[in-house]
Write a protein that binds this DNA or RNA. Sequence first.
DNA 1: GCTCTAAGTGGACATTGTAAAGATAATGGT
DNA 2: ACCATTATCTTTACAATGTCCACTTAGAGC
Lengths: 209, 209
Amino acid sequence: MSRRYLGAVPDSYHHGDLPAALRAATAELVTERGPTGFSLREVARRAGVSHAAPAHHFGDAKGLLTSVAIEGFQKLADALTEATEGIDDAALRLTACGRAYVRTAQAFPGHFGVIFQEDMVDPTNQEWLEAGLSAYMVLYETISVVRDQLNPSLDVDTAATLSWAAMQGLVVLASKLTVVAKSTGAEVVPLDDLIERFTRITIEGMRAR
Amino acid sequence: MSRRYLGAVPDSYHHGDLPAALRAATAELVTERGPTGFSLREVARRAGVSHAAPAHHFGDAKGLLTSVAIEGFQKLADALTEATEGIDDAALRLTACGRAYVRTAQAFPGHFGVIFQEDMVDPTNQEWLEAGLSAYMVLYETISVVRDQLNPSLDVDTAATLSWAAMQGLVVLASKLTVVAKSTGAEVVPLDDLIERFTRITIEGMRAR
DNA sequence: GCTCTAAGTGGACATTGTAAAGATAATGGT
DNA sequence: ACCATTATCTTTACAATGTCCACTTAGAGC
């Protein structure tokens, strides 16, 4: 008997859906031990298969990690889409984007520990590029709304890049913020609130012409 | 005869300044192969010492990487300090900060590949925390100037965090921007110019009350 | 000059990623 | 229904890695 994941066919020679199980185990492992703690053999163990099984589906370790990264971008794109649906006001919409971004990153730390780790994924993988792009497009759409409502001469590309950078940067910095706040004596602001403050500043900046 | 680095005493049993040589070799290796490509034994080889030598100075691999991360933060703090020196205008100063940040990241990719990789460094290391904090403080100082000149009621902590996040995020996203631009048909903007556009937006946002 | 300690070496061991060859189950054609 | 083919998974093997240990070498201090 061994641990198995989604779509498992217990105690059968064939797994059922090993690729998905391996992705899940990878995300779990990276969540626990960080990107560096990833190990193909440990992942195989957690999925209840031999250490050589992953190779048949993903080629090598980088292939598996790339697949996880793609899944991460898809989760992000879905979250951003769902979060902005039905919101008309530009500022509210951008805030919703930011919240969704940070929350997705916190909900799937295993995936987010990999998506921008360019040496862990195959940077030439088309799916990975497209998955990232389609997540970006959701944000781009929201910035377009900002342009339409607040400033017709807004450079949407620049503003979208800035928003993305600020969100991803915040995710990376998050753990350091508490330490910094303790040293500077500043209040510790919850990420959700911080996102709102970020949005307030950037929205005002985008409004100006 | 073996490759040696700074402070080397050729062909002597003792190295001269092995810690510095190991840091340099680490930065070089991470630059070539990315954070994942780091290997303690390869670093030792490049420094011309046996594979067990690093342990006497840094304990384990994480100790060495932490030391490199500290060096990275120091380089950043120095660059930010130098870049802002003598600049009085708030907007120009913030732009200079951004430029210095991105340029330092590009000049020392080995260091920047490690500084925020929390699973590769010892997150309890006091020097690492302090080095990061002192780099942040240079930025904080600049945002204080923004407050003094443009908006006395500006929340400096929030604005400084936003600026840092945007810069670090931009560094991470940089390699994807070209791809995105190719897909959206947008122009490929040099990072230096992008930083200026970022600054223009955020400065306007900070000015608003 | 002698001892003590810091600095570096060499070997051992468990763990890792990948490759190759073998075993097992499912599939598809007749 | 049967057989061959193929996809899936296992086993074995090998080189490389990080850390530990015992050993050697060189400086520093008395």
